[in-house]
């Protein structure tokens, strides 16, 4: 059998044959350098304004959570009742009274800055737990099928029957000295089912695709098929669900704190929203700032998820 790497023959035949016609495409080849899915996605992302805006917001939030001291000199904890519900002073940018004071006379600006850490940790860590668990279980169930799928799917059904709020409430009850990590773990243990279902469905669709059959026909093993073919093609819906639920987890933490079962001895947006809601009639600003930060954070993550999903789909580039 003649070897393909005989360039001379290959070129000669290609020019003779009427088949040398692929070149009619009017598009000019782009400057083509590196070519992995992720590097291409990254190059594409850098050109998207939505990505840049959301990435800047998220980076800022990460910086705030890591080094709150950089952003304010004020202490969020001690209250000074002389400042009781003092209105914001927008001209004092970055000062303790910038966003005003709450009912206990604490600086809202300082509390928003110091509260970011808890919210971000809960959001990111819970999403990470949920995504890893959900993708793993969903992928195994969808790809291997059979009794593995039957067992894992029933397990998913059982877990999804537990209301997350109620479930995490019960779990957290058992812990004293609850931190952002405990809250994340409690929500994460219960929250993986949605991503599992999405992932399982996507994997089942993808594994029947001809390109997966083609890879099997080439002799590719399960590991390769999962990583190269199944995973990249089932990622899109998971990213969407994960980013949307990231916001949801931040709000869930807020709810738990509101119910008094969230992070203890700490500052979180959720706890402050809960406090602020008591003053909603006479001092809206107490509620507005933590709630506004929460909304912007959630929005930024959703926008990021959208942009990443689009960038990972070459058809949308």
């Amino acid at each position: 059998m003649p070897e393909l790497n005989d360039t001379a023959t290959a070129r000669a035949t290609a020019t003779v044959s009427p088949a040398g016609t692929g070149d009619v495409t009017p598009e000019k080849p782009k400057k083509e350098t590196s070519n992995s899915l992720w590097s291409n996605a990254w190059r594409d992302l850098r050109r998207r304004p939505v990505f840049i805006v959301s990435a800047v917001i998220i980076l800022l939030l990460l910086a705030i959570s890591a080094f709150p001291g950089w952003f304010t000199d004020a202490d969020p904890k001690p209250g000074d009742l002389t400042h009781f519900l003092q209105k914001p002073n927008f001209s004092h940018i970055g000062d303790a009274d910038w966003f005003g004071y709450d009912a206990q006379g604490r600086s809202i600006y300082a509390r928003v800055i110091y509260g970011a850490r808890a919210s971000i940790i809960v959001g990111v860590v819970t999403t990470a737990i949920v995504t890893v668990l959900g993708m793993l279980i969903g992928m195994i169930a969808g790809y291997f099928g059979g009794w593995v799928d039957a067992v894992l799917s029933r397990l998913t059904d059982i877990f999804s029957g537990v209301p997350i709020l109620l479930g995490s409430l019960v779990i957290l009850q058992a812990f004293t000295g609850r931190t952002a990590w405990t809250v994340s773990a409690a929500i994460g243990v219960l929250g993986w089912t949605q991503i599992t279902r999405v992932m399982r469905g996507a994997v089942i669709t993808v594994k029947q695709a001809d390109y997966v059959q083609a890879a099997r026909a080439l002799g590719a093993g399960s590991g390769r098929i999962l990583m190269k073919h199944v995973l990249p093609n089932s990622l899109a819906p998971v990213i969407v669900v994960a980013t949307i639920s990231l916001g949801m987890y931040i709000s869930l933490e807020a709810t738990l704190s509101y119910l008094g079962i969230g992070i203890q001895n700490g500052i979180s947006w959720g706890g402050d929203i809960s406090d602020g809601s008591e003053q909603i009639r006479n001092a809206l600003h107490v509620l507005l700032f933590p709630a506004g930060f929460l909304s912007v954070t959630v929005l930024a993550f959703i926008m990021l998820g959208d942009a990443v999903r689009d960038a990972l789909d070459p058809k949308l580039r």
Partner: peptide, 12 residues
């Protein structure tokens, strides 16, 4: 006999 090339792109 094969018609060479491809059907045109309707954008161009």
């Amino acid at each position: 006999y094969a018609i060479k090339g491809l059907p045109p792109n309707l954008l161009r």
